[in-house]
């Protein structure tokens, strides 16, 4: 079996470094070739790598990377959108800010999101027009939209 300098991962999860010392100290450039029998190899064991490879670590003990929930906030008032954005970020959401409906539509189309929070009265594209555009596209049709406005009659209402 020929071995080449480099790195590989063993079945037990450890990282194996194959080092050709002769090549490292050589003064002349050498082409890629199998390492000599006298070359050194090092194996580095990461903590827990063997247990992970065996699958013996309970899933509860492994930190999970939660999927980030992305919310697009559209409001022509910079103070409102920053205020709302800060509240959302403080509660663990990832926020993308848009100054109007058009910018929000571009963000949603380009990056996708879980929720759109929008004002109604905005330049270039209103909240109404934004909702119409989102509902027309199969890729954005199902994204929930929360309207934040001073025009609503109720303080809060969730459509069922």
């Amino acid at each position: 079996m020929k071995l080449f300098p480099g790195t590989t991962i063993a079945p037990d999860g450890s990282l194996i470094l194959l080092i050709d010392l002769n090549r490292m100290v050589a003064t002349e450039p050498s082409e890629r070739r199998p390492i000599q029998a006298s070359a050194s190899a090092a194996r580095i064991f990461a903590p827990g790598s063997t247990a992970i490879a065996r699958g013996s670590i309970p899933s509860e003990a492994i930190d999970r990377v939660e999927q980030e929930r992305v919310i697009v906030v559209a409001d022509d008032s910079i103070s409102v959108r920053k205020f709302v954005g800060r509240m959302l970020e403080k509660n663990g959401y990832r926020v993308k800010l848009a100054a109007d409906g058009l910018e929000a539509a571009e963000l949603v189309t380009q990056h996708g999101c879980h929720l759109v929070i929008t004002d109604l009265e905005m330049p270039r594209m209103t909240g109404y027009e934004l909702m119409v555009q989102l509902r027309q596209s199969p890729s954005t049709r199902r994204i929930p939209v929360m309207v934040v406005t001073s025009r609503a009659g109720q303080n809060i209402a969730i459509a069922r």
Binding site: M87, N91, Y93, R135, M146, V148, T149, A152, I156, I158
Partner: peptide, 22 residues
């Protein structure tokens, strides 16, 4: 709203109401 709003919130926005709705 026929355009498809899922929820409404009135300004000024209160954090507890916003987060609960979200």
């Amino acid at each position: 709203m026929k355009e498809g709003a899922t929820a409404f919130l009135t300004k000024p926005v209160q954090e507890d109401q916003l987060i609960a709705a979200v």
